[in-house]
Amino acid sequence: MSKNPMVPNPATITKITSETGSGDVKTFRVVFDDPSLAEGFTYRSGQCAMLSVFGVGECMISITSTPTRPGFLEFSVKKVGRVTDALHEAREGDKIGLRGPYGNCFPLEKMKGKNLVFVGGGIGLAPLRSLINNVLDNRKEYGRVDIIYGARSPQDLVFKEELFQNWPKYQDTHVYVTVDAGDEEWKGPVGFVPPYLEEINPSPEGAVAVTCGPPVMIKFVLQSLAKMGYTDDQIITTLEMKMQCGIGKCGRCNIGDKYVCVDGPVFSVDQLQALPDEF
């Protein structure tokens, strides 16, 4: 790899999975072209990478695969703008650029032996997926696992195979899925994530909650968790800010004196409280 952190490394898309009904979220499996990188690239759950579509630009995307299953990286990308549009045009075999991994990671050490509550919304399940699979691959090191996930409609749910088939099979692992608005086929619960979370009400006793999703959802989930008795240091979340360099140089992603690209994206709520309200 180049010593220059700003130069992306060529990589190949080996598999594309359309996650949602409308196809606005796709998961890309990617392998570095350079064999030494393909072997030697290490990362931790929660970290991100900069994906380049040459000629269009870059965007920061969470690594949604887990380091416990090496050999490739996976990214789930929602189509929202220039680069993500271009990624969605890509086909298996196409070349992209990759640099990373960037940012801090989920505090796995701190989570060992604890009951874990994962609360996700929409594409926010992408970073959580890495963590969940990481935890499940070392299932016995953790306590009870509750996964609460919601999306706008059944069409918008991502990682359906894992949600409905793989994860519930693990021991003491409970998956709850809700949608804002159902359709004819939807048999599950209907409603927003925060009230659903309160309904399930996982005990704060010896627990750590991790939440990722759209800012409004996070805001209300944090209120719900507080109501349920979770203290700020028991809650972990991720933040999103506009990014360009990903390495703490371009001066764009700061919230107060913290740069989300290097000091985040993972923050505990007590860390968040210390930041100015500008995100």
């Binding site: 040459f54 000629g55 269009v56 630009g57 870059e58 360009q244 360099c245 140089k249 371009c250 001066g251 764009r252």
Partner: peptide
């Protein structure tokens, strides 16, 4: 010293 990046093709 803030910057952004842009591709030209």
């Amino acid at each position: 010293h803030c910057f952004g990046m842009t591709d030209e093709v």
